[in-house]
């Protein structure tokens, strides 16, 4: 299996461990990732708050470069915000020649042309459907039996485009978590919003949303995420939120490929676990003792 790979800006900065662990587990699963040449920012949520056209032109540039590379059409994207921005161009240009022409007028400035061949895939979609629980099970060397893991999906890999899971009651992570030997925590917070950039511009509102999620995870040993923004919001403000809610809400937050990597027997260092802000010693000990 081969995919083009769009890491996105966060995976070079605050989410390095998401990049490390994604590459590690994909390598173990025999999947080849070909990074898109000279990729640039997808526009995040900032472009769409400033200009509609720019918010489509920035991801379109990356899709056009991807289409020039290899004869692989599928682009693997781990970050949910990048995924949605790239997917939006795929969806909005399909059957809309006017939109395609407008974007190509812009891309012509860089001698690029979008043909509409690229298919954008979220990492979770690829893990759940292309690899599947059976493949994950076959790679497990260190069972995580005894652990309870809360699957957190966030918003933008699920909505507005319903590609690979139920957009309100997602379940795609559960068989994968259970393939590692761990149990999935049953809760109804998996598809609720983490507040996105509110944590920067309206911390009072962001904290309220994250507090509900952390409270919902009571009883689980860790929460797993599939988005750098969700990860940062859930892990970076736990002490403040606990203090403010008068409750012990500290919990380990991991990226899904980090959890899978631990079950595959990959070292904590290779998975970048030292880079997480919330991986507790108690949790890491429990992982060692599991199985």
């Amino acid at each position: 299996m081969r995919y083009l790979y769009y890491p996105g800006c966060s995976l070079e900065g605050t989410a390095i461990e998401y990049n490390l662990s994604t590459r590690c587990i994909m390598h173990m699963a025999g999947v080849e990732l070909v990074e898109i040449d000279d990729w640039t920012c997808c526009g995040a949520s900032a472009a769409e708050a400033t200009s509609d056209l720019l918010s489509l032109a920035l991801p379109a540039r990356n899709l056009a470069i991807a289409e020039k590379m290899e004869d692989v059409d599928e682009i693997l994207v781990p970050c949910s915000a990048c995924y949605l921005n790239l997917k939006k161009v795929e969806e909005k240009t399909r059957g809309d020649q006017r939109m395609m022409n407008t974007l190509n007028t812009i891309l012509a400035e860089e001698n690029l042309r979008l043909q509409g061949r690229a298919v954008v895939r979220h990492l979770l979609d690829v893990i759940a459907n292309d690899l599947g629980a059976q493949k994950i099970l076959s790679l497990v060397k260190h069972s995580l039996r005894g652990l309870i893991i809360a699957p957190y999906y966030g918003c933008q890999c699920l909505r507005p485009y319903t590609v690979f899971d139920d957009p309100e009651v997602p379940q795609s992570m559960e068989p994968i978590i259970e393939a590692t030997g761990a149990k999935a925590h049953h809760w109804d917070m998996g598809a609720t919003c983490c507040g996105a950039s509110h944590m920067n511009t309206r911390m009072d509102v962001g904290i309220e949303l994250v507090a509900h999620i952390l409270e919902g995870a009571k009883g689980a040993d860790a929460i797993v995420t599939v988005c750098p923004m969700c990860q940062m919001n859930l892990e970076a403000h736990q002490r403040k939120i606990s203090h403010w809610r008068h409750a012990e809400l500290d919990i380990t937050i991991l990226y899904l490929p980090q959890l899978l990597g631990l079950a595959f027997g990959i070292s904590e260092e290779e998975l970048g676990l030292n880079l997480n802000l919330s991986a507790s010693d108690a949790f890491l000990e429990k992982i060692q003792k599991a199985a």
Binding site: C9, T40, G43, A44, S197, N200, T201, R202
Partner: peptide, 21 residues
């Protein structure tokens, strides 16, 4: 706050192609 947040984000992208946090 949100306008300056988004504008400064886009300025960094414009300068470097990728956001420099």
């Amino acid at each position: 706050y949100s306008i300056l947040f988004n504008k400064n984000f886009m300025q960094s992208v414009r300068r470097h192609g990728r956001v420099k946090e």
